[in-house]
Design a protein around this nucleic acid. Structure first.
Length: 644
RNA sequence: GCCGUUGUAGCUCAGUGGUAGAGCACUUCCUUGGUAAGGAAGAGGUCGUGAGUUCAAUUCUCAUCAACGGCUCCA
């Protein structure tokens, strides 16, 4: 007998060699039908794998992340089985679960597949699933494994085997398909009741663009059709929040073929949002001791040779234009210009920290396949600033920048983000990173220290630093799941030297400042793209392009509506009037769809009492109000930059 | 940049080897209506661009541009 400890601390005895599934059955058949895998002594196992000694046990179902992953991983095997059945000779790389489903990377030997193939594969997968094929685990020697895949002619699996040793190699077989896999898997394919293959994509082998491109098939699967339907519904919901769709519907921005890819045109409504954001940034930065500067959009080649950007980032810059025998580049970053401002006059320690801020317009030649609505563009307006400080001042300055992020995020109610501490990779010194091993260590420790001492949760990511120093990126996700850096806070110990920037210390010695590059609001493009999705287009009133719409019941009340409009405008409230020849129901509907926060409806009654009927977007009729009170209240809400 | 898909009116989309349709939006008229779509009429498109096949191309072929889904990249 073995002693099994359950998550609630209960200990029960079972015959040696019982599986998690056996144990579940002993509790209830209903539970056994839901068990996908098990956590045995903290490791995820097949539910069917015999347990030979005392262990702690947690049964994993669809409601556990690990249970879901196992389910999707097994679905990937099922996909591979279907692919092998329909397209003999296919070779397989890897088929992992992902956040929302699974994929399998496959070499189809020159064959390309289309949407119809996905439907055929779905049918085949469902057929195979219905056969309740058992996932059989088998430990196998490296020699036998190599022989199996050599005979099969699958060089990808052979490549995987190279890094595995005897004793850690397992095969999983379901039906006619056998895969090299460490598992675990669900008990049998019958658990997979609903399957949707979502898309086909090319994916470089091992993620290296010098390698062959494999066919990646993405899919998602569920234990019931109802779950799939719900998932598809949520996908539809997410699409409604997509900033590209909302941006068009709300008149925020547009793109035009003649202007060029990745070059957003800001429409009047979008421009209002930009101006509100800039107002916020300018107020905040003024209070934090920043000074504003303005710099040109272009500079000579020599500037970027000095900064070091040309050797590192030329591929991401627009090609140069030639004037008077000189090469000029569109600026991809503002820092070199700001460094020149620092250098324009001699500096003493008394001038530090010097904080230079600019909403700088940058142009980056992003790869065509990378462009994505407003989130990834080729012309961007950065909430940029550079802080020049001494080593002693660094901690406070860097910390203040981090606090500024948090302050902004509170204003916008941004809660789902991850702080990412990006570090250098020592083997790439002199290539991807400036060759200053000591400075790298020192500044990375300084930055980590700020995060640790301010108890900011963060993740460390190697090989993601800027070429000039480590950084903290704030990562967010678009509604369709793409990850982006929203804000960034970077240390730069390299450019100060490259530009020979100096200040005179208290001891009358020349010293090189440390530089902090920071962009708490990222760029207008990405930030507004993110805000559109974050609020689903329902902007808080302070950034709403139109804050109040005045709706006369009929044209008899247009004059009174105009009077109200006048008072609103006098109070600097962005208001419009809907004087179309439409019924009030239609006007309300159109205003609701336009996501305008407030409506003032005026007719016979309102005119008689010199009032207005208030309606709030999404909340409906709020009854009659006194206009002066409304203006006071609304102004207060706008000034507070209230979220709702 | 790479793989795949798509490209018809301002928007969402239908359609055909014989030079095009719907709904919404827009304009005009009727209606003056009280909290999410009143009615009628009208206007609007070289079917992304270029070339080829054909008596004839929006439709077939090729190229190109752009968008979309991924991959790679992301100061």
């Amino acid at each position: 007998m073995i002693k099994i400890t359950f998550p609630d601390g209960a200990v029960r005895e079972y015959p040696t060699g019982s599986s998690a599934l056996d144990i579940a059955k002993s509790i209830s058949d209903g539970l056994a039908r839901k068990v996908l895998a098990a956590e045995v002594d903290g490791k995820v196992w097949d539910a069917t794998r015999p347990i030979a000694m005392d262990a702690s046990l947690k049964l994993l179902t669809w409601n556990d992340v690990a249970g879901k992953s196992t389910f999707w991983h097994s679905s990937a095997h099922l996909l591979a089985e279907a692919v092998e059945a329909l397209y003999p000779g296919a070779k397989f790389w890897v088929g992992p679960p992902v956040e929302n489903g699974f994929y399998y990377d496959i070499d189809l030997g020159g064959r390309s597949i289309v949407e119809e193939d996905l439907r055929r594969l779905e049918v085949k997968m469902s057929d195979l699933a219905r056969q309740n094929e058992v996932y059989v685990r088998k430990e196998i020697s490296k020699g036998d494994a190599v022989k199996y895949f050599s005979d099969k002619g699958d060089e990808y699996k052979l490549d995987l085997l190279q890094n595995l040793q005897d004793g850690e190699i397992t095969f999983y077989t379901q039906g006619r398909f056998t895969d090299l896999c460490r598992g675990p898997h669900i008990p049998n394919t019958g658990f997979i009741k609903a399957i949707k293959l979502t898309n086909i994509a090319g994916a470089y082998w091992k993620g290296d663009d010098r390698n062959k491109q494999l066919t990646r098939i993405y899919g998602v699967s569920f234990p019931s059709q109802k779950d799939l339907d719900e998932y598809l519904r949520l996908l539809e919901e997410a699409k409604k929040r997509d900033h590209r769709k909302l941006g068009k519907e709300l008149g925020i921005f547009t793109m035009d073929d003649d202007v060029g890819p990745g070059l957003a045109l800001w429409l009047p409504n979008g421009t209002i949002i930009i101006e509100e954001l800039e107002k916020l940034a300018k107020e905040t930065e003024l209070a934090a001791g920043y000074k504003r500067v303005v710099t040109p959009h272009i500079a000579k080649e020599s500037l970027y040779l000095t900064s070091g950007h040309l050797p590192y980032y030329q591929d991401s810059m627009y090609p140069p234009m030639e004037l008077e025998g000189q090469k000029y580049y569109l600026k991809a970053m503002n820092c070199p210009h700001h460094h020149k401002i620092f250098a324009a006059e001699p500096k003493s320690y008394k001038d530090l920290p010097l904080r230079l801020a600019e909403y700088g317009t940058c142009y980056r030649y992003e790869q065509s396949g990378e462009l994505f609505g407003l989130m990834r563009v080729r012309c961007l307006h950065m909430n940029d600033a550079h802080i020049y400080c001494s080593k002693e001042q660094f901690y406070d300055e860097f910390k203040a920048v981090n606090e500024m992020y948090i302050k902004y995020f509170k204003i916008f109610g941004i809660e789902k983000f991850v702080m990412r501490l990006s570090l250098h990779e020592p083997s790439k010194l002199g290539k991807k990173y400036v060759n200053e091993p000591e400075l790298w260590k020192e500044t990375e420790n300084l930055v980590r220290d700020v995060l640790v001492r301010t108890s900011t949760p963060f993740v460390e990511v190697p090989d993601e630093a800027a070429f000039y120093g480590p950084k903290i990126d704030v990562q967010i996700w678009s509604t369709i799941g793409k990850e982006f850096t929203l804000a960034t806070n970077q240390v730069d110990f390299a450019q100060g030297r490259r530009f020979n920037l100096q200040f005179v210390s208290k001891e009358n010695n020349p010293e090189t400042p440390l530089i902090i590059h920071r962009a708490p609001l990222g760029t207008h493009e990405r930030f507004i793209g993110f805000l559109l999705e974050h609020y689903a287009g329902n902007f808080p009133v302070w950034i709403s392009p139109v804050q109040v719409k005045v709706l006369p019941i009929s044209d008899k009340y247009i004059d009174y509506a105009q009077t109200i409009l006048g008072s609103l405008k006098k109070a600097d409230i962005r208001a419009e009037i809907d004087d179309r020849n439409e019924k009030i129901g239609k006007k309300i509907r159109d205003t609701e769809i336009a996501k305008i926060p407030f409506m003032l409806i005026v007719g016979e009654k309102e005119l008689a009492e010199q009032k207005a009927s208030l309606r709030r977007h999404g909340k409906g009729d709020l009854g009659q109000i006194n206009l002066e009170d409304f203006v006071i209240q609304l102004t207060r809400e706008i000034q507070a930059r209230a979220t709702d």
